[in-house]
Nucleic acid binder design. Structure first.
Lengths: 333, 333
DNA sequence: TGCAATTTTGCAATCGGTTGTAATTACTAA
DNA sequence: TTAGTAATTACAACCGATTGCAAAATTGCA
């Protein structure tokens, strides 16, 4: 920038103002400087700018997928979320730093915030960290969490209405006459529990109830789900539907069931959750709940930027018009 | 930091040295300052540090998946790559900024480098941008590209040996007696073309040749592949195997073929590429080439850090022991 | 033309660290 | 005790922008 100043014969403060399109600079001068800048390929030094402006124009996204957690990094849900958030952030000229903690106890998120590398943080999923999230304290006003609604959250929480999603699934499955519905997922996670609650509330409304033996606890790992469903098939428990907590689990369930010679959806209807990209195409029998991840990402970014700007933000936000969809929705069940 | 200086009664330069574990500081003083720092929850201001040190301890990763390119954001390959690179970067205490260009012509990568937001850049895939990549010029020494080897590259290129991978597939398919092998993918992309070349070289070695009518050109979009394969099935061309340029395409192919009543792998053997996480589980009939993405990410990060440090780096690197694998490998074909 | 009002530009402090060099203190040995 | 050396610590410049305020240049009006 001092180079530009010399070239154009003005002070660097004028150069700075020109590059920032300040009205204080005569338009003729501005043009001249801008021309020079583009000719010399000048780019503002973000490091200096960030220091002076006390902001880094960068958001952080924390994807809590450490070895040991069995939610696999390749779960397309995360990539779609990263893409959605990145897209939304760049709309506001923010960059995105991604952070994958090594272990559940690591508090890398704080480092990003306190050191000023990121102006705010988006955390995907509360899984197993609700306690720590609650203790964020003073940095809580620069954080937004994606997850299932819980009463205990005193941080800003964004997430689709998992209970309603669960009800959608329940209604759909009962509509097509299924009553022996298995649930596949880990209901210690708030998101998953809410989906489960939605299902049972529908059953209760019909005077039925969920059979505990059809609760198949599984992490988000497809391998585990696959073998758990195989176990289920070999057990004495009969079932005519599976509600899987994610599409990856749903796809695993379909293949497990099929490998046992059962037909999907004739013998066993399977519903997933997330509507990951090509779910319908990958697995023609899979119906799923569309969480509208793109919109979710956008809402999180907007909420976070509002918080950073000092605005008050509602504690919880629900982005999505949940939709149940699947190429086979009308025909299959 | 000035706060810490007051608290401990020393100059901030001493505090700085203490926090950086400089041998210039008496160990007693150091301990005292460190204790104070942890008690007050002090974190070094990265913005100031970055400015002074002329580095940002941050790498950028460019995922060229713009709307219009049909490689879907949800292709698990990208997420695995992001995870691998992120992992490798954090091993060296580097953060990772992700950048998803809006359009093929956008040169966001340059902005990241020139503004100093990132010290170096990892670009995934050359798809359609070879020209621009070649014109990077002066910033080329802070860039590493993942992709297929081409002669024209004058930037550092890291990638598995796609030709060898193609040969592996060719050998496998011919070993099990297939000769009418269709190729599914876009051979204008260097990576894909090399895989294709590997296949044809095996066929040639056996005195056969690739039938042009079995070249099914498709982007990395599963939807497109699905319908292209349907078309193939309806055509007069007979085939007993499909070599898909990615697992997503392979999975699409399997379902397309099955929907036409053909059995996989009995009637049609399908091989993919990438070994995305749960490929084998998702689609029991899919054999695939394992690119060892984790290792690839690590090699890229190491190469990039070397370049940043001013070391000379070989123009091209090949990370992976390619392995062909699949739960069904022995039994299916 | 002269002077006030308005634009435009320059000066200098500042953001919060790092680091070369000078100054101080502590230690060693005569 | 003291000179001489080594170990610590303090001073001050610097990284490259932004911005409040003063100075200079331009404009408008009498």
């Amino acid at each position: 920038m001092s180079g530009l100043a010399k070239l154009s014969g003005v002070d660097i403060s004028t150069v700075s103002r020109a590059l920032n399109d300040s009205p204080l600079v005569k338009s003729k001068t501005k043009e001249h400087i801008l021309k020079l800048a583009s000719e010399t390929g000048y780019a503002i030094n973000a490091r200096a700018r960030n220091l002076r402006k006390q902001s880094s124009q960068t958001l952080g996204i924390v994807i809590p997928v450490y070895p040991g957690s069995h939610q696999n990094l390749s779960d397309p849900f995360f990539l779609e979320m990263i893409g959605a958030v990145s897209q939304a952030a760049s709309k506001h000229d923010y960059d995105l730093i991604i952070n994958v903690p090594h272990s559940p106890t690591e508090i890398a998120e704080q480092r990003l915030l306190l050191s000023g590398k990121a102006d705010g943080l988006i955390i995907i999923g509360q899984a197993g960290r609700t306690e720590r999230l609650k203790s964020l304290g003073d940095v809580a006003d620069r954080i937004v969490v994606w997850g299932g609604m819980t009463d205990e959250a005193d941080y800003t929480l964004v997430g689709s209405d998992n209970f309603a999603g669960g009800r959608l699934v329940g209604q759909h499955l009962t509509d097509i006459g299924r009553r022996n519905i298995a649930f596949l997922g880990d209901i210690t996670l708030p998101e998953v529990r809410l989906r489960y609650n939605g299902l049972t509330s529908v059953l209760a409304g019909l005077g039925g109830e969920f059979a505990p033996s059809l609760m198949i606890s599984s992490s988000f790992d497809g391998q585990e789900a696959y073998s758990k469903i195989l176990d289920l098939c070999e057990s004495a428990n009969s079932f005519d539907a599976i509600f899987a907590a994610s599409d990856v689990l749903g796809i695993a369930a379909i293949h497990a069931v099929q490998s046992k010679g059962l037909r999907v959806p004739d013998d066993v209807a399977v519903v997933g959750y997330d509507n990951i990209g090509q779910a319908a195409m990958i697995s023609p029998g899979l119906t799923t709940i569309d969480q509208n991840i793109a919109l979710g990402g956008e809402i999180m970014v907007n909420a976070l930027l509002d918080k950073i700007a000092g605005k008050r933000v509602h504690a919880t936000l629900t982005p999505t018009n949940l939709v149940i969809r699947g190429s086979t929705l009308s025909a299959s069940f």
